[in-house]
Amino acid sequence: MGKTFSKPAVLSHTMTHYCPGCTHGIVHRLVAEAIDELGIMDRTVGIAPVGCAVLAYNYFNCDFQEAAHGRAPAMATGIKRVRPDLIVFTYQGDGDLASIGMGEIIHAANRGEKFTTIFINNAIYGMTGGQMAPTTLPGQRATTAPTGRNTDQTGMPIKMANLLGGLVTPAYVTRQAVLKPQQINKTKKAIKQAFQYQVENKCFSFVEVISTCPTNWGLTPLASLKWAEENLLPYYELGDVKTPE
C-alpha cells in the first residue's frame, strides 16, 4: 500500500503558536496544498500581517515578507508590480484587513492587482486579546465592548467580501468557512481557484474564510464551531460573491 497522506512541502516542520482549536492551522494547510498542487512554491512570496498570523512566515517554506498592520496589500502591490512573474499572497485577519488596512485592500482590489488575499474572519481581534473588530457581530462581547457590540455607536459588522465584490473592477471574491469538513473542502477549492486566477494573471482574488477564536470567544473549540455556525454564517453568507467571467 502506498503512502496516502503527507504534509505539503511548503509547510515547515515548526510547531505553530496558535491556540488549541484555532482554525488558522487548517487554512495554512489549505494554502500550502494549493501552492504545492500548482507547483508554484519556488516563485511564491507570502506576506504576513500583524495579528495572530504575524508569525505565519515560520510555517511556510517559501519567501516571505512581513507587513505593518494592515499594509500587506500595499506591499503585495509593490512586489507584484515590479516582479509580475512572482506569485504573491497576503494572509490577513479582520482587524488587520477590515479596520486599519481598509484603505489598502480596497484600492489594491480596485486596481485589480494580480495577487491573492486570504482573509481570516473570526469576528474579533485575536493577538491583542479579544478587542472588538469591524466584523464583530451586534451584541457580541469583546474586551472593548464588554456589554456587547453596540451598533448605534459602532455601526454594523462589515461584510468585506460583499464590499469588495461591489467594486466594478473584475475580481474573484468568495466567502467560505472551515467549520465542517464539507466547508473545508470547498474552501480548499476556492483557495486553489484564487491562486489559479493569479497564475493565469487574470484578476485580484480574495477568499474570506469564516473562522473561530475559542480563546477570545471564551468557548471550547467544539462550542466555537457551533457558535460560528449558528451566529456568523447567517450574517456572513457563504459562496462566491463575484467571479471574473
Binding site: I47, Q65, A67, A68, R71, A74, M75, A76, T77, G78, I79, K80, R81, V82, G103, E104, H107
Partner: peptide, 10 residues
C-alpha cells in the same frame, strides 16, 4: 501610507 509599503514590497 500605502506608497511607503509599495516601496517596502518592491
Amino acid at each position: 501610507v500605502a506608497v511607503g509599503y509599495m516601496i517596502f514590497g518592491a
